[in-house]
Design a protein around this nucleic acid. Structure first.
Lengths: 328, 328
DNA sequence: AGTCAGGATGTAATCGTTAACATCAGGTGC
DNA sequence: GCACCTGATGTTAACGATTACATCCTGACT
């Protein structure tokens, strides 16, 4: 209710100047006399003083928040990345504000403006959408970081994530090695560069595009379910399905269960992303494991490092892994 | 790279004073001449100006961020609440910063201090831990809101969530109505008031404490799994298990599956919380559905309303629902 | 004793915004 | 013509912190 104590209050109570108090809280304690340190500590404690991050940010023209924009915060994999990032940022003294674009370009641009307003130290985008405003910020601000998916090929900015083409390729090769037939690819939205890269990799892996049934799909369970219903009710075969992410795979699986199909006897389902819950709730799901927990440290590193020698785009490519479970 | 334009730059370019620009961006446009509005709009656009939230916060002694502290961000239900809150806050012009306490008292207190530093408009705690610092803030700041679980009985502060005792009671009554035997309650940590309330309700519902096997457990899959292993390997019965949350239930289920037990023929499993994924991945789970998506609007309302007539603690009690799936 | 180095601390300008108050022009009522 | 009002805009003092620069003190060296 009453306004919080300021640095001046602490200074007055401990009988020193605000500069000294500031030095104490900025960790410049080796420039202070032990007696002074103690009296400031005491006064701050008595008053319950916490330095105002706002005053500090204003003075330093630099805030300590990082904005993370996610396309769908209810996606468990997305959330895992957010958690990893939050934890790593906290480790270097930063806070994370989370916001949901809902895969909506206008909403994303609005949130980017908000992030500007907060003078965010960095803006991390999972699944960014390619808009003029985004491109403008990439060039003018240079504090954007793309995680997991790049919005487009031409954009030069730091990226953290796997090599999507290689991952798709690995799945394609696996399909060939196991002799799977009746290939189906339920791929993500074409406007994501990453989705297309996964699909291209997969097709390169199986080696024959004409034999791959392709469906474009939003990254949701509902969409996966609907694609599966259409496919399975149209013609029943032992399909080998490569889903663009695990959500789609969950949806597909449900449709298969409703038709009493068994995995992997009647159907092979491949997902993409993997998260902690799969081990417990989806032991039938074989998927490409993307190391969600490694995003945090990687992004923290990109933020801390001042600048690389060359222009823009440092990349941190994380390893992926084929996580084979019962379905294969 | 170059520092962002300030209100002064816009004022200079459009030939008006900073006050006028400020008025424009504070939405006081009906006090401005149309010609002025247009020239400010133009200038701001040319410069790419976005008002500094930091400057504004400093001046107003009030920031627009709300800090949300969660005990375990990887819990899907917890995340659903966070998403709901973020979305509702965005609707009233606020941002959410998310932080993870990891069920750790010291970490929570550290984060509370950070929230103070940010001059957070409000602090929302899911699953707060009762510490002296917490109690101090509740009384001195009055901007704390408890969601889903209260830390303790004595604390007077706004609360949003279900009535845990009633929910436990409903489960107990259901057990009786269906004639379930061999009651087991894997309840949450005792230091959470909410956990205890659920357990007390359940016991009241079944009516005979002495016939309830009780285990205290962390809210994790691993813990649920371990309790299940011990219980099932000790003596095999058709247990009726009430788990403190869905995570624990997932863990219990896995142990049951490994032993080829079938739900609900060999075992009844009850969870608590429910989330969107259950419908798809855990159709065997009967659970108490807590309306995660209603937390956001409720919390936004608590933050917006200045103060109730009486001291502290307004509560918003949300409805719960028994979500019966295959397991029962 | 005088000079000087260097450690400890104080003074004051500054960051970007808001809002109370001041100003000013033009219109209205007498 | 004067007083007064109103609507549009300008002036300026905060808000809470940091830091370059100034100051003061103590002790060491010549």
């Amino acid at each position: 209710m009453t306004k919080p104590p300021t640095i001046r209050d602490v200074a007055r109570l401990s009988g020193v100047s605000t500069a000294t108090v500031s030095r104490y809280f900025s960790g410049k304690t080796n420039a202070l006399a032990p007696r002074t340190i103690e009296s400031v500590r005491q006064a701050a404690k008595v008053l319950g003083y916490t330095p105002s991050e706002i005053g500090r940010s204003l003075r330093l023209a630099q805030s300590r928040v990082v904005v993370m924009l996610v396309p769908d915060a209810t996606n468990h994999f997305t959330a895992d990345i957010a958690v990893s990032v939050e934890s790593a940022l906290k480790g270097i003294g930063l806070s994370m504000v989370l916001a949901n674009t809902g895969e909506n370009a206008a909403q994303q641009d609005r949130l980017l403006a908000d992030a500007q307003g907060l003078r965010a130290r960095a803006i991390v985008l999972q699944g960014a959408i390619d808009t003029p405003r985004l491109r403008e910020l990439v060039t003018t601000q240079g504090n954007l970081i793309f995680a997991n998916r790049r919005p487009a090929q031409g954009i030069i900015a730091p990226y953290v994530g796997i090599d999507n083409f290689q991952a798709g390729l690995a799945v394609g090769h696996y399909f060939i090695a196991r002799g799977y037939e009746n290939w189906v690819a339920i791929h993500g939205p074409r406007h994501y560069f990453g989705s297309t890269a996964r699909l291209d990799g997969f097709i390169a892996g199986v080696g024959d595009a004409s034999r791959v049934l392709q469906f474009e799909s939003p990254y949701t369970m509902q969409a996966g379910y609907e694609h599966a219903c259409r496919l399975l009710d149209h013609e029943r075969k032992k399909y080998s399905v490569f889903c663009a992410n695990d959500m789609i795979a969950y949806g597909f699986y449900r449709a298969a269960m409703e038709r009493n199909l068994r995995v992997p006897d009647d159907l092979v389902i491949f997902g993409f992303d993997d998260n902690r819950l799969n081990e417990w709730l989806a032991p039938w799901l074989t998927t490409v494991k993307v190391p969600a927990l490694e995003f945090g440290p990687a992004i923290a590193e990109l933020i801390e490092m001042p600048k690389p020698g060359f222009e823009g785009g440092r990349n941190i490519i994380l390893p992926f892994e084929l996580k084979v479970r019962q379905s294969a």
